[in-house]
Write a protein that binds this DNA or RNA. Structure first.
Lengths: 333, 333
DNA sequence: CTGAAAGCGCTAACAA
DNA sequence: TTGTTAGCGCTTTCAG
């Protein structure tokens, strides 16, 4: 069978001390005489003893693992956040249980529940929206949860974001300043607060300040995919758009290639500013101008915030806004 | 304090049955009279009882979580595999502990150890290389491990891959058939068996069959990054390469843009075939021709294989090769 | 079909 | 500085 797993008890017996003492040296508790510590360490080495984290978790009620709910790891925007999360988690000795939700409300709830069942010490949630049902589950959870790249319209949950409204406003102003009177607004579903209540608001604000009438024909609601962007070209042309602010880089790449493939020149005939500044912006031609956001940092800060929450430290501000910028590349003048 | 967590014991008491019975209904054991099952279920509902997976894990020695070691989630190639892994894992009721290794041998070993400590039921490993030390740890683990997109030179570990040598040979033959006498081979480190023993071998094979002398000046060893590719242009020119087979899509995008930015036309002046067929190949202009591999499936099949291993099913073939192809796009004639 | 009881491997008071 | 002793919440024989 299985070669007998060696337990803390075996070590205690061999080292001729109590389990408590072994536990102490394993956990770095200073209240152990150096001599006995050495003795125990030797036995541990000799027996090749490995502490069982599950048993430890049960006894201590801490698993040193946190749950991460992500729409899709395959999306470069989210995977950048995830990387920030994992790095900081590792730094603080946590592991990550990563699950893809596809932004599917039911799946999110279900996943959240299995994470709770697994007794994770905390959760980082990414997604564009928090359904009512999900919010209820969040409330019920006694585990700390922080949102990364995801706004809480009610402003009650800890979260890390940039000021999307201001960023979009600035980007659109830039486009208008270049002489574009008809700037399209292209985003994912307007059911998502981040699009409806932040990005679109910034867009309207910029128009207003420039004295341009808002025209909802210029607002395009689609899904965040390259394909969707590519297919948008005819529609953009039919409303005489000469520029666009776009909510996602893959989507933007699609739009740009769609426009280009139709024979238009970017930026001469059509200017584009995208929103996430992923490395994709530098890989396409022309390179895309973008709102910049510190993707990795959003994840990293979110995780850091979570560690504080998990150790019940007092946190000054639970909703942190990281700085954004506007990076001019070749898709704008 | 904490609202008292409700345990299986509470349910048993309230339902006036034994813990064993509650355990049975929770685990869907059929040996329970429908009436008592209902009674228990009602109490579970009323008390909002949630089984504690950690306790269950300790008692049953199964955690229903598997470890996934990935070089970098941010790399679109690996994230595609990861997605396949997670989907199948979820299908079989497993969760994934995901950790980035950066291909760093020490980190890999360390991560592997914490995964073992957490008593994962299995592990999927991704990476270009298996260091000697890592291999020793693998051997020591009593937990099933499968490699995804990662060859085992010794052919002993379960793995899922494509036939890299044959794929590269076919791609290079294609390039040669187009009249290219000087085809560059651009890959990551040749310390990696996948590059040295498979891809390069396929490259040499194609040359040999075409009667072209192998010239190691045409072999470029670099890291898998966009930047690295972009910087390669002068070197490529200096050895008069007119085409290249490239081991990674981001790297290939970099090469292509570097070449293009230097004033050359792809594919007229320089042909490119890349290796991973990620969505990036369709986003750049010209679109890149590529060896196709079923990325998602490699992950999915690896996970499926792991589930079999975890439940001790007999597996016919532990090293599976999935089909590859050659997708002609606009970076070749 | 159901219950009693013995752990799983470790932590955490509490004593000493 | 060290040991004793309860559990943590659940699964799993073994009886009945």
């Amino acid at each position: 069978m299985d070669k007998q797993t060696v337990t803390i008890y075996d070590v205690a017996r061999e080292a001729d001390v109590s389990m408590a003492t072994v536990s102490r040296v394993v956990n770095g508790n200073p209240n152990v005489k150096p001599a006995t510590r050495k003795k125990v360490l030797d036995v541990i080495e000799r027996l090749d003893y490995r502490p069982n984290a599950v048993a430890r978790g049960l006894a201590s009620k801490k698993t040193t693992t946190v749950g991460v709910i992500i729409p899709d790891v395959t999306n470069i925007y989210f995977s950048a956040l995830a990387r920030g999360i994992d790095d900081i988690a590792m730094m603080y000795k946590y592991n990550i249980i990563l699950t893809n939700s596809d932004e599917n409300g039911r799946k999110e709830v279900q996943v959240l529940n299995t994470l709770m069942a697994k007794q994770v010490d905390g959760i980082v949630f990414m997604g564009n929206d928090i359904s009512e049902e999900l919010r209820k589950e969040f409330d019920r959870a006694k585990t700390p949860i922080v949102l990364a790249g995801c706004v809480d319209e009610q402003g009650v949950m800890p979260s890390v974001n940039i000021d999307y409204a201001a960023a979009v406003e600035e980007a659109v102003k830039n486009l208008i300043d270049h002489g574009n009177q008809r700037v399209a607004f292209i985003s994912g579903s307007l059911d998502y607060p981040i699009n409806r209540d932040y990005r679109l608001k910034g867009y309207k604000q910029a128009l207003k300040k420039a004295g341009i009438r808002y025209d909802d024909k210029l607002v395009f609601e689609t899904d965040y995919s390259y394909k969707a962007g590519q297919l948008l070209q005819p529609a953009l042309q039919s409303v005489n758009a000469t520029a666009a602010i776009i909510g996602d880089d893959e989507l933007a790449a699609g739009v740009m290639n769609g426009v280009t493939d139709a024979g238009l020149k970017v930026p001469d005939d059509f200017e584009i500013i995208t929103s996430n500044d992923t490395k994709l912006t530098e890989m396409v031609r022309p390179k895309m101008s973008s709102i910049t956001q510190p993707l990795y940092d959003i994840g990293a800060v979110a995780m850091r915030l979570l560690t504080k929450l998990m150790s019940s430290e007092t946190v000054d501000d639970k909703t942190v806004l990281l700085p954004y910028g506007l990076m001019k590349r070749a898709s704008t003048h």
